[in-house]
Nucleic acid binder design. Sequence first.
DNA 1: AAAATGTTTGCAATCGATTGCAGACCGGTG
DNA 2: CACCGGTCTGCAATCGATTGCAAACATTTT
Lengths: 337, 337
Amino acid sequence: MDNHAGPQGRVRLSDVARMAGVSTATVSRVLSHPDMVAEATRLAVAQALDRSGYRMNHAARNLRKGRTGCVVALVPNLGNPFFAKILVGMGRELAAAGYDLLVADTQDQGSLPATLRRFLDPSRADGIILLDGRASAAQLAPGPDRPPVVLACEWIEDAALPRVVLDNQRGAALAVTHLRALGHRHIGVIGGPPANVLHQARLAGTRDAAQDLRLTLFPGDFSLQAGQAAARHWLALAPAERPGAVFAFSDEMACAFIADLGRAGQRVPRDVSVVGFDDIELASHLLPALTTIRQPKRDLGRKAAQVVLAAIAGHEVAAVTRLEPQLMLRETTAPPG
Amino acid sequence: MDNHAGPQGRVRLSDVARMAGVSTATVSRVLSHPDMVAEATRLAVAQALDRSGYRMNHAARNLRKGRTGCVVALVPNLGNPFFAKILVGMGRELAAAGYDLLVADTQDQGSLPATLRRFLDPSRADGIILLDGRASAAQLAPGPDRPPVVLACEWIEDAALPRVVLDNQRGAALAVTHLRALGHRHIGVIGGPPANVLHQARLAGTRDAAQDLRLTLFPGDFSLQAGQAAARHWLALAPAERPGAVFAFSDEMACAFIADLGRAGQRVPRDVSVVGFDDIELASHLLPALTTIRQPKRDLGRKAAQVVLAAIAGHEVAAVTRLEPQLMLRETTAPPG
DNA sequence: AAAATGTTTGCAATCGATTGCAGACCGGTG
DNA sequence: CACCGGTCTGCAATCGATTGCAAACATTTT
């Protein structure tokens, strides 16, 4: 590329215009509305554009257009492979639409409210995908200058914001129904944080499907450590009181639960059946392979991106986009021994 | 907050200035260089600032200052929990310095060169952290208007760019030395893609430490599927030809390898010892818990962020920042049976 | 040939914050 | 009282692309 840059060392739109012998307006139009420009002019400009190696200055365009070209995803825990997978689908979809994906972890950097304030700003991002249900509806008040917010995975009961979610009740029902069909009558549940909507929805689904079955709740928070703790609790029960099947609200908890039971000599599924939730990639590569409820992670990300893009474009968007869970039957469930 | 917004509905610096009875210059200085402003003025402005609920327009500031406030991380596979964890450390460090973290997956969205071109643009990001070693030095030519690039985890041999990397050779040596100490004389290696620098460095470290030991290389690519394939290969060998210990260049391969051997009736570590690489969070919660080489993931992310921030600030930065691996002794290794 | 219609282009204002420069103001000194 | 040095503030230009408006030109109609 030639050096047609100005003194600042960078090629500007006006440099290209000078090269092509037209005004900056025309060059801008060639870039954004090619069909308003006459064939011959367009070609001349196109040539100048690539001879000069012109790269647009995004700050300038964004200032003028009042947009940012970014969508931010606020994730409760980036380290969780489940969320990471969702981001993949999201990133693709956004990139295809010309948007960049900004990522912020709401767990560690400051508090969630602080992070929210930081990004609920039309000059920071054109749209927000919130994967953390701990925000309050008030914090998300739809001011006139607030970029559109879409809730994904988790949601907030009283917030009038579009959601892209799994049918968690149904997912739980799938798990419980499966265990009942195997003959289990006493089911342990390793839950999430009591205030968490996913916990609540899954628990509701579990209770509905359980009907006459006995349930024992082990507290949890979706983490590996919670799985360990549940294993301790289970082992501490008198053998007759131990549920013969356990439904964990995350694969990670299921995983840690199984491993720690194993260390205590209890085998899965011989002594306990286990069902997880999420279907993280590793689930099918464990021994025994984890029976679990699959969330279509990539799709969740893709759909969330589509909804936020539609909202940005000012289109009407569905209040709720619900995805279907699926029972992945593998090796950790069996009839009670 | 009062509504002091202009007709566009948004409070601008000039609105605040009018409220405080000063010029925009002064308001700007209160925000960016408070010590140039007299006490009394500063207070008046500060009051106007929060009474109006002013939020700065980033596009405008960025245009004027010639920066973006973003750093982009180019990740080969976001779905990999290893990379996800690195991003956590990175995100924190950047947020603390007032930078946003942009994430792009180089695996799926278009080709790596396309993604590179997209982000090697001073108006898109102020700095780049490249975690994908498949770029060529030529693509990263240090033009005058190219934001600083830092290589992390992976690197590119002939590129004169700062790196933040693990001492991979030493990591491999730790693994092999451990296996030798247990009495193993024939070690299988499940590698990465042959062209991958991590593969090469770890293989070199393995060879150095192996000396007189026998090595058998199973091809791989760090994925779960590669671990499965390696299991098939291992099982296909005549029993006398099977290495009694296997060193996998990623935890995911180790994991899948162990699971599939288990399905074929081979137990770890009774029949084979296995060492992984990375120490993903799940590694210690498997059964048996995976012995592995730990990479300080969060630190890697933090350090990479620090280096790129220093480069952005125009400071001299170390050509290489090397982090130390650590052998995590767990349950998958034992003396040969 | 004049008028009407449609297409293409350029002028110049605009988005909102930052900053070099110079003027205003202060108290203190000769 | 004039002058000096220092501190604080405002003016106005600037970053670079976009776009409403109107001028210039081409084409068709009457």
